[in-house]
């Protein structure tokens, strides 16, 4: 059967405002896995303690019809208040934080430090044979930083996933 939708896949960043109640994240993750949608990145945290709201940022890829479907499916979940497609509403600010550990001595160590400096990464832990760098930026920037550190004793990476917010004065 030919695919009904052979438009190319697009990457979209969705912002969700949800009730911070038990199981809400499971509901969202279960929706993606149950219906076969992709999650490229997912972040979640409470943003308003008084009204017990959490904000979830999901980066997903799919054909336009699938992206529309994902938004409608999310929107009909009872504890989901709002779903905003930041990719559609205009250029949003997207940031990710990563902690990156490198290990090495001598020249390699020096090189890592120089690269970190040029990426404006901060050194948050130092030993005589290792560094932990903290870097914030667009996911692509972090990808690039990590790939440069690979030959310089990269040990491990921990990334937060994307947090995003629309530009301009209005809320989501």
């Amino acid at each position: 059967m030919p695919p009904i939708n052979n438009e190319p896949a697009e990457r979209h960043t969705l912002s969700l405002l949800v009730d911070n109640e038990p199981g809400v994240l499971a509901r969202i993750v279960g929706l993606f896995s149950g219906r076969g949608y992709n999650i490229d990145s997912l972040t979640v945290s409470e943003v308003s303690h008084d009204s017990r709201r959490s904000r979830i940022t999901v980066v997903t890829t799919g054909a336009p019809m699938i992206i529309e479907q994902i938004k409608s499916q999310l929107d009909r979940l009872v504890p989901v208040h709002r779903v905003v497609d930041l990719t559609v509403t205009g250029k949003a600010v997207e940031r990710e934080l990563a902690l990156i550990k490198v290990r090495g001595k001598g020249e390699i160590r020096q090189e890592a430090l120089l690269i970190a400096d040029s990426f404006r990464a901060r050194t948050v832990d130092t030993t005589l044979e290792s560094f932990v760098f903290e870097i914030t930026g667009k996911p692509e920037k972090i990808d690039q930083f990590v790939s440069l550190l690979e030959p310089l004793g990269l040990v491990e990476v921990s990334r937060t996933g994307v947090a995003a917010i629309g530009r301009g004065p209005d809320s989501m």
Binding site: M65, E68, Q69, S72, R76
Partner: peptide
């Protein structure tokens, strides 16, 4: 009544 039914299978 369910927006997720729209354009799910058929445009």
């Amino acid at each position: 009544i369910d927006p997720s039914s729209i354009n799910k299978n058929v445009k």
